[in-house]
């Protein structure tokens, strides 16, 4: 198996505007949006990044797509460092990695017709010899996302379409350049329940058909269970658990994953509830605890958790967990902090 995407100890910090007082005191406060994330994604694989708002999952996606520059760490795509790409190399990376946005109402230029929006990638990458050929390709792309007949959508503006239709157009646009990696950030969270399944099925079918490698980012574990074979749970900028989706959801090991899984409401009212016993205070990413980021809320917190950050280390079932409850996670003296070991 080839690693298509290798993310190693990725970090992204934002300086915090601390105002006059901060300037006088000389303090530099920093938000650690992504704080040492490592994972690999195999060709044709599907990884779900789960976590709550502010855990750094969207920042991770934008770093991978080179919409942001990492503070430290590396992202390698097909063996090449993404940060160093420019010129024609960058253009070719742009063709290979595509992004599905969370808000379909904002992802298309409001002043472009659908046809114009879909011609854009073809113009940029000089795909198709004539305008007629490009229009053919656009029609084909709309057909593939089940917007039929395609011509009826050509001259529509985004505000004339529903959310579900817009997200299909966004998917069509991403597929026009024949990418190998597709990153989707909460692709259905803005859509109504009854039409979510259509968009999810479409993405699942298309990525199987074209053997795409996919990275889904969502707060919704159920969605990730449906779409992904591997799940990583993020908390405050770090991965606290990663492994085969079934294992992570059926037998969560990290106390945070356990809380997250049992907090998800279930559409079956007869199923008994497992209570969640953790505090509802969320530490902000600029006051990171010295030890485990989850220590303040953890119901099973131990003394060691307060001052030693656990490493993401393998336990059983192909799962890696960053938690001192699992003896492998306690770093030996020689090792520094951060999850240096390569997962999976």
């Amino acid at each position: 198996m080839n690693h298509l995407l290798e993310v190693t100890d990725l970090r992204k910090e934002y300086p915090l505007q601390s105002g006059l007082l901060g300037a006088v005191m000389g303090s530099r406060r920093v938000v650690h949006a992504v704080n040492g994330v490592s994972f690999v994604l195999d060709e044709g694989g599907s990884l779900g990044l789960a976590g709550e708002s502010g855990c750094g999952k969207t920042t991770t996606a934008k770093l991978i797509l080179k919409l942001l520059h990492p503070t430290a760490g590396s992202i390698r795509f097909a063996g090449r460092d993404v940060a160093g790409l420019d010129g024609s190399d960058l253009l070719s990376y742009r063709r290979q990695a595509q992004f599905i946005f969370q808000n379909p109402y904002e992802a298309l230029n409001p002043r472009f017709t659908i046809l114009r929006s879909l011609l854009e990638p073809l113009i940029i990458h000089e795909i198709g010899r004539s305008i007629a050929e490009r229009v053919e390709r656009v029609a084909g792309a709309l057909d593939r996302v089940h917007l039929n007949p395609p011509e009826t959508f050509f001259l529509k503006y985004p505000h004339q379409l529903s959310g579900g239709q817009l997200q299909r157009v966004v998917i069509a646009r991403a597929l026009l350049v024949d990418p190998v990696l597709l990153v989707a950030d909460e692709p259905v969270s803005m859509l109504d329940v009854s039409i979510r399944a259509g968009v999810l099925n479409l993405m699942r079918d298309l990525s199987r058909e074209r053997k795409l490698t996919t990275l889904y980012i969502s707060h919704d574990l159920a969605l990730i269970r449906y779409m992904c074979s591997v799940t990583a749970v993020m908390y405050l900028g770090t991965i606290c658990e990663i492994g085969p989706t079934e294992e992570v959801i059926e037998h969560p090991r990290h106390p945070y994953t356990q809380a997250l899984v049992s907090a998800v409401p279930d559409p079956d009212p007869t199923r008994p509830r497992r209570p969640v016993e953790i505090a509802d205070t969320v530490p902000t990413p600029f006051q990171l605890p010295a030890g485990c980021p989850f220590a303040d809320r953890c119901p099973q917190v131990m003394e060691v958790c307060r001052h030693l950050r656990p490493l993401l280390l393998p336990v059983d079932g192909g799962v890696r967990v960053a938690c001192h409850l699992y003896p492998g996670s306690t770093p030996r003296a020689a090792e520094g902090d951060g999850a240096k070991l390569e997962p999976n």
Partner: peptide, 17 residues
């Protein structure tokens, strides 16, 4: 009922409306 995935059970293919 079949339009969104469940966390507790492995979903067969979802069926949109």
């Amino acid at each position: 009922r079949n339009a969104f995935p469940s966390l507790r059970a492995r979903s067969a293919r979802l069926v949109p409306i």
